[in-house]
Write a protein that binds this DNA or RNA. Sequence first.
DNA 1: CTGAAAGCGCTTACAG
DNA 2: CTGAAAGCGCTTACAG
Lengths: 305, 305
Amino acid sequence: MEAASELGFQPNAIARSLSTQRTQMLAIVVPHVFEGYFEDTYFSQVMRGLLRVAHKYDYRVLVSGSGGHMDEVSQIHEIVHSRQADGIVVLSNRLDVDVVGPLREAGIPFVLIGKPPVNGEDIAWVDSQDRFYTEKVFRYLLDLGHERIAYVGGDPDVSVTNERLCGYRAALAAAGIGERPEWIDYGFFAEDGGYQAVHRMIQLDDRAPTAYYAANDLMAVGILRALHELDIRVPDEVSVIGTNGSLVSMHSNPPLTTLFVPYADMTAVAASMLIQSIQKGEIPTKHHQVDCRLILRETTGPAPN
Amino acid sequence: MEAASELGFQPNAIARSLSTQRTQMLAIVVPHVFEGYFEDTYFSQVMRGLLRVAHKYDYRVLVSGSGGHMDEVSQIHEIVHSRQADGIVVLSNRLDVDVVGPLREAGIPFVLIGKPPVNGEDIAWVDSQDRFYTEKVFRYLLDLGHERIAYVGGDPDVSVTNERLCGYRAALAAAGIGERPEWIDYGFFAEDGGYQAVHRMIQLDDRAPTAYYAANDLMAVGILRALHELDIRVPDEVSVIGTNGSLVSMHSNPPLTTLFVPYADMTAVAASMLIQSIQKGEIPTKHHQVDCRLILRETTGPAPN
DNA sequence: CTGAAAGCGCTTACAG
DNA sequence: CTGAAAGCGCTTACAG
């Protein structure tokens, strides 16, 4: 032992992993490696939560990029079946691809970040109750007297976009307001997506929205930018609400009202679940719900007139 | 082969790695897992560049957290000696710890992001010429007539903080302006650090700075927030320049003039160097310099009077 | 308590 | 060209 430490000997982690069947790694695959994905606070928060608890328990994080839906699924599949990690946190909650099913069959510990699938009793997930909290956001806007409200969602194939849309619809329906397809747009989580949404909807003239909800802050600042260029005053003429509570929402002009989603906490919880299950040699099946919080700032006000 | 693909067989990556002595992994250790570290755009950019080229060449990224200087060095040491990755990109360019030396001896491919050490001919690095570009920033401020200029650096133990300080000093000296310790502060890259710097310097009354340079945008928006609360107009009374060109710099009030540092490109180049060297079985020794760019926006103007 | 052997699941050089 | 064997560097159950 003395000689070993004197020579700075360090056991080969790969050989140890092969022998113990443990890698001390938590995996995550980023759904889409393109610039916009890293601009909002989402990815940073996810990594922060993950790294915090991984580091605490002496785990490391294996990150794999992917170039879109199909690639993402195959990356997950490869990591899982090649046993490169002891567990995986799954970000992508898509409507068009079943990523949970194969994972379940593979028998590897995984935690889903987002809404559980229909028969999700036996899998682990951490959910932010997107439908419920989005509905609350729209109720807030309705209470301010807004009746023409736009929904600017992210990627339409993604579960969260659909959940928020359902919240939107539920709020409008409860208020007895008919839904209009012109008020619904998808900005794919990009700044320009929000910007373009305004330019499309502004053409509705007297049917143009007096309030916009965007599914992330990046699109929301795109909306602010478009409104600013069009000399439309916020919040006097139009109200705007973003999502995520990122740094830019605090310092935008005006400071952005935003629905904070605690992604760092969610992935921290997911990492804890994963590590506990790994250490017990079980597949995690816990469920956890976190609460979102509407941060009121200066982009929301009473409807005009 | 048919049977294999029918049964969905996937070779065990760990066993393969042990046999081939290749992990298909690039490692990075994040210098300090605390909230502020993930708020600026720096970490996202680093990950983005790394993931982009790693994914392109079918590599994955191993991320390890760390809780400060010493832990960081031991994390690097552990990853390297336990052979968990084929190469590593080193972010931390510290003044107080020699991280390059041990890495050199370990004989593992690594690329340093930042200023090369004195005898760095035989190692690989990607540098952003921080001293040179910081000096340019201050020259710009001096040309606007500012004579009382504050330097708000990051962590003082970190090389980049010192490089920028040297640029500051060089610019002042060239302009024949005596340096004052009251104009130098360290905000540790945190929003509050910038905020506090203003509150300290404002007490200098008629010797208070008419311009602030901050080593990241997070501190710069903290400076903006403090000035706003003190009813000091930007840029009429005081100018502010940040660093990094993050999203918040574009949307702050007023939009922030900032020194853009292409961190995503830098780590992308580093990843390329690493992968090429790994494939040739060599230790990388290439050097690469990137250019920074001052993005002029609305927080800078002529000195008052 | 100590030490040698088997096994983790691959790859690859080598014998047939 | 095919197939069996050795080896990658550990851990752990087992024999002595």
